[in-house]
Design a protein around this nucleic acid. Structure first.
Lengths: 110, 110
DNA sequence: TTACTTTATTGCAATATTACGATTAATAGA
DNA sequence: TCTATTAATCGTAATATTGCAATAAAGTAA
């Protein structure tokens, strides 16, 4: 049905999947990588950097902002976006907990 | 259009987003966590563990298998699934590279 | 004011995802 | 053989996502 049954999963599982979903599109990965690369905040030249139309970029930025991974501040007609370092670190801890899971035994089972 | 323009992104960006998309659903997160927890390979009792119908679980397993994160071997009428440790480690390296990005300056910009 | 620049929003089309009932396929056991 | 058991696949409905043209909104500069 295109709708996830979030209610049957733990908060942790839902949180992991919410963050992962944000990274589940190459445009958002590219946006974040670019914001990391350019120390100074970067505005709408993300549209030039990435090859998507302005409304599309704006939509991806909205999602990332909604998740708290980036923040934007208005500077005249432009909007300056950058990584929300604090939230990024918090997200990272959650994702690391998931990625660093380890198998107890060394046996190959399947 | 529901279709991602993968051709305008780097292989790395596409790979990150492909893995992330796999984790972008709580059921798949739950499946992986359960496979990690139960050392011995676990079969279709994932259906009982997680509250989704058998065809739905089977579909999620197929995606994870297709990505190479799990492997399954047939044991009679049952199928035993487990983490593909080697591929998981490789995936982890890629995701860590993305998550561990750092901002060069300490100034808060926005 | 008017013209311009930049970004957000709206509306829509195309495609993808999620979920499950029904069915099929394959094996095990009687 | 016949009958369970288990998992994959098919088909389909509901919903989500992606992308962009058109437009709106909000500021700047003349």
């Amino acid at each position: 049905m295109g709708i996830s049954k979030t209610e049957i999963f733990t908060d942790q599982q839902n949180e992991i999947s919410r963050f992962a979903k944000a990274f589940g599109h190459p445009a958002r990965v590219a946006i974040l990588q670019h914001l990391f690369k350019i120390d100074a905040c970067v505005c709408g030249d993300l549209v030039n950097e990435i090859g998507l139309a302005q409304p599309t970029i704006s939509q991806h930025l909205k999602e990332l902002k909604h998740l708290g991974l980036i923040k934007g501040s208005i500077e005249g007609t432009r909007v300056c976006y950058c990584i929300n370092a604090k939230n990024w670190t918090a997200m990272k801890q959650i994702m690391l907990g998931f990625l660093n899971q380890d198998i107890s035994t060394n046996e190959e089972c399947c």
